[in-house]
Design a protein around this nucleic acid. Structure first.
Length: 881
RNA sequence: GGGCUCGUAGCUCAGUGGGAGAGCGCUCGCCUCACACGCGAGAGGUCACAGGUUCAAAACCUGUCGGGCCCACCA
């Protein structure tokens, strides 16, 4: 081999060069007509003006590994990139910048403001795409899109119109979540719940016409100011304490309004006083009670969460001031029965953490029932599966209880709702945007609201493949080929926001699920398993780590810790460890390139007859590792893949095989070294693309159109599995370790040769003989002899040296009788269990009455025991020979 | 209140019916001609607790205790 590698692996020298070459060579690009079974993944679109954080790094690492693996296994694989306009988030940032100039968006006006946001996008947008490249993401950049580009905007409008036409979108006055800071409505899931220490105030509402404060009822509330909008008091129908009051009227203090006492089963008689003030315009429960009892709904709160004109004397006060003043005023009138501290949860805007205000508002909604039922059915029928499976349950529960989705936002940055009002106030949702003439003629004005960001992202699997609103999934070659996509990979926290909606939209518009599998990764946590957050100061910047340790190291550290659905801790030491692994691999390759003849890379493995014990062992281990990786990849358990390859490369290939290879100069060793390295590189490539590619290119003296990322995945090579070689090699390893320990305990210098006399019976000797050259080499044994005098003494090898002696408990040398007995015992169990399963399945009563799951489980057990019998029988034969 | 999840070596985690493991940290010894980003040897665990199933349990079942997460309309 001509090509020499530098002494240490330097990621910074390699990564950018390789990435540029991959990208410019079109290795990331796929066409619908390409060979192979289709395999598509959409990258969850990051905020267009965002920066890469550690969570993205995990997403990219996992998805890139999936896609690279798919490519190597012969799929027509495509990974689709893009960015999201992130309506409320982006608008908030730009508004904040305006505020620094002392301006609000209203000072600019809608058009100029949107102009500003586009400028902001121009300035900061795309950063994250460059950062994704730093990680090695093999995204098909030719297919990059943006949720607000023209084609996607067409698709959004088309989707809106079709749902409107099908009565799945409606406009109505409903109780919604209002953020008084963002000044917009929010959907239910954009509201977080926070525990706060508040006060529970007990208010007295006297009977109408009575001066006695205690004549009526006492109600409890954490939001006293809302009493200004009360239109009833509710009690439980069976609550005897209040039976006599049902139907009577109370005087609402401060407002001097007459309100009825009503009975509603929703009221919990056990809580508080058992009587509830009802504010239909400002509480979800009260809203429902209000609807049931046809109560008046008085909106007493303004957009900014102050008291409105409807609040009488309190108008203009902030809701918190109003709360204080209301309780104080009631107290002054003897109508405050008490105040106690009370811990409860309040809804806050998930974006700005301002306490949201439930209020009545005219908004657009998606009627979710039909859509949600279809999505739930698809999951229940297994058309879309979850990894881990258990996540399906929560998802289904959520779908089953879903409320209508408020999709209008009082923002400017986003897709403006394609609905117009004429001069008489009539609503129009035309199938095309109205022409200027039409607009003029009817005096049309477009609805000023924009759509929830997730309305456009729900179309992502469709729009990334070119869909613009048509019916069906066959309208573009891309959709025909790649829809449904293979797997949707995301954090479990996004299942409700995004996954559910894609499922609903995909089923509706394309008639089929948008992805076969939902794979949920966990959250990245710090090295102590704590949540990363800015306030803890334990956040990690992935770019720092890439610069310090390389992208492969960061990826590998993340993936090694990643078990599907489990949170993954990450600490700098882990990344450092992964960097060391990359370097280890690099240096193993340097060794291989040094000793291997330059022709061996193309020659394949030598005939069986030329292989030594260690050759047969490492080839057997290699295929075992390959099998583990293949198995783990069926559920994309990348943590298992990482651990298996790491162990193989470091502990088996480097620590044992390479050490033994050093003393050999036959042709076989070079060929095996190269072959094993080549397969290991391919197994590892999806996880560590850069270092593996760089080594592979040197190993194969590859030209510029040959790339590991398009090389074939290692095929099963079960013929190389060699149980005999593995147990003989295990004997070697244990003997060597024992001798090294002896050396360490006796403080012998490495240079000193050991003289060994080993006691061994015939069976032990048979196992040991083939391993002897290796043992002598690795343990530094000069003379080795077997003592024949003690062959009957016992099962253990016994080694003496210069008067000291030790015993070597060698695998394969242990008590053969006991081993035999163990196998026989297990075989007996296996046979018995197999027969039991067979009987059970043959029993018609069992089959007829047993639930399908039970029958299935019995069948599986049968297969398991049959496998066990095969395995044990194999072991028995081996032992016999 | 409901659901999910975790409790294994000092730390972070794999393991899910027959052997208790990894990385980091720790101790001792090595610049051995791929690698000191390294090599070798070692210490360290009643696998949360209590019952049960099994010839056999860290693993399966039941319960208890303790962490975490999600959902929910207790004013």
């Amino acid at each position: 081999m001509k090509r020499e590698l530098p002494k240490g692996y330097e990621p910074s020298e390699v990564e950018d060069r390789l990435y540029a070459w991959w990208e410019s060579s079109g290795f990331f690009h796929a066409e619908p007509g390409d060979d192979g079974e289709p395999f598509a993944v959409v990258l969850p679109p990051p905020n267009v003006t965002g920066n890469l954080h550690i969570g993205h790094a995990l997403v990219v690492s996992v998805e890139d590994a999936m896609v690279r693996h798919a490519r190597m296994t012969g799929h027509n694989a495509v990974w689709l990139p893009g960015t999201d306009h992130a309506g409320i988030a982006t608008q908030t940032v730009v508004e904040r910048r305006l505020a620094e100039e002392g301006l609000t968006r209203h000072d600019l006006g809608r058009e100029a403001f949107i102009e500003r946001v586009w400028e902001h996008v121009g300035e900061y947008g795309g950063t994250i795409l460059r950062q994704e490249r730093k990680l090695g993401a093999s995204l098909d950049w030719d297919r990059e899109i943006f949720t607000l580009d023209e084609t996607r905007s067409e698709a959004v409008k088309a989707a809106f119109r079709r749902w409107y036409a099908d009565d799945l979108i409606y406009r109505g006055l409903r109780l919604i979540n209002w953020c008084p800071r963002c000044l917009t409505a929010l959907s239910d899931i954009e509201v977080d719940h926070q525990e706060v220490d508040g006060e529970l105030a007990y208010l007295r509402y006297p009977l109408m016409g009575s001066d006695d404060p205690e004549s009526g009822v006492t109600v409890a509330t954490t939001r006293a100011e809302t009493m200004l909008g009360d239109t009833a008091v509710a009690v439980h129908p069976d609550d005897e304490r209040y039976a006599h009051l049902i139907g009577r009227s109370l005087r609402l203090p401060l407002m001097d309004r007459e309100i009825p006492v009503i009975a509603d089963a929703h009221v919990d008689a056990e809580f508080g006083t058992g009587a509830v003030k009802v504010t239909p315009a400002h509480d979800p429960n009260d809203y429902e009670i209000g609807q049931r009892h046809d109560l008046a709904m008085i909106d007493i709160i303004t957009n900014e969460a102050a008291i409105s004109e409807a609040g009488g004397a309190y108008a203009g006060l902030d809701r918190v001031e109003a709360r204080r003043k209301v309780t104080a005023d009631l107290d002054a009138q003897g109508l405050l029965a008490g105040v106690e501290s009370h811990r409860h949860s309040v809804g806050v805007c998930s974006r700005c953490k301002t306490v949201i205000e439930p209020r009545l508002s005219e908004q657009w909604f998606v009627a979710v029932r039909r859509l949600a039922d279809a999505a739930a059915a698809a999951v229940r029928e297994g058309r879309t599966g979850f990894v881990p499976e258990r996540n399906a349950k929560g998802f289904l529960d959520w779908l089953d209880n879903l409320h209508d989705w408020c999709i209008s936002r009082q923002l400017w940055w986003g897709h403006q709702i394609p609905a117009w009002y004429d001069r008489d106030g009539n609503l129009h949702v035309p199938s095309d945007d109205p022409s200027p003439e039409e607009t003029e003629r009817l005096g049309l004005t477009q609805d000023p609201d924009v759509l929830d960001t997730w309305f456009s992202s729900q179309l992502w699997p469709l729009t990334t493949l070119g869909w613009t609103g048509e019916d069906g999934a066959d309208v573009t070659p891309e959709l025909r080929t790649w829809y449904p996509t293979a797997v949707l990979e995301t954090g479990y926290d996004i299942n409700t926001f995004w996954v559910s909606r894609m499922l609903m939209a995909g089923l509706y518009f394309a008639g089929e699920v948008p992805f076969r599998t939902v794979y949920n990764h966990g959250m990245v946590r710090d090295g102590q398993g704590k949540k990363m957050s800015k306030s803890f100061g334990n956040t990690i910047d992935p770019l720092d780590f890439i610069e310090k340790y390389g992208a492969d190291a960061l990826r590998f550290a993340l993936l090694r810790a990643a078990t599907p659905g489990q949170d993954a801790p990450l600490a700098e030491e882990w990344v450092e460890g992964a960097r060391r692994f990359a370097n280890k691999l690099w240096n193993a390759a340097r060794f291989v390139l040094m000793v291997a003849d330059e022709t061996v890379a193309t020659q394949g493995l030598p005939p069986e007859g030329l292989l030594e014990l260690e050759d047969r062992w490492i080839l057997s281990r290699l295929d075992a590792t390959r099998a583990t990786v293949d198995d783990a990849m069926t559920t994309w358990d990348l943590g298992r893949v990482a651990r298996a390859v790491y162990h193989f490369v470091w502990d088996e290939y480097c620590d044992w095989y390479l050490e033994l290879a050093k003393q050999r100069d036959d042709e076989a060793v070079g060929a095996v070294l190269v072959h094993v390295l080549d397969v290991a590189l391919r197994l590892l490539h999806p996880l560590m693309p850069f270092v593996t590619e760089e080594i592979w290119r040197a190993l194969h003296q590859a030209s510029d159109d040959e790339t590991l990322m398009r090389a074939s995945w290692p095929a099963p090579d079960v013929a190389r599995r060699d149980q005999a070689a593995e147990s003989q090699f295990a004997a070697l390893q244990e003997a060597v370790t024992e001798l090294r320990r002896f050396r360490a305990e006796h403080r012998l210098s490495p240079a000193e040769r050991l003289t060994v006399t080993a006691d061994a019976d015939a069976a032990s000797r048979a196992v040991l003989e083939p391993a002897l050259p290796g043992i002598r080499q690795l343990a530094g044994v000069g003379e080795w002899s077997f003592s024949t005098s003690a062959t009957d003494e016992g099962p253990q090898g016994k080694v003496s040296m210069k008067g000291a002696e030790l015993f070597i408990p060698l695998t394969g040398l242990v008590d053969l009788d006991e081993e035999r007995a163990r196998i026989e015992r297990e075989l007996a169990t296996a046979h018995a269990e197999r027969e039991r399963a067979e009987r059970k399945l043959a029993n018609t009563g069992f089959v007829q009455k047993a639930p399908e799951a039970l029958v299935q489980s019995e069948r599986e057990k049968l297969v398991e025991w049959q496998t066990a019998i095969a395995r044990l029988s194999g072991q028995r034969e081996e032992l016999a020979s």
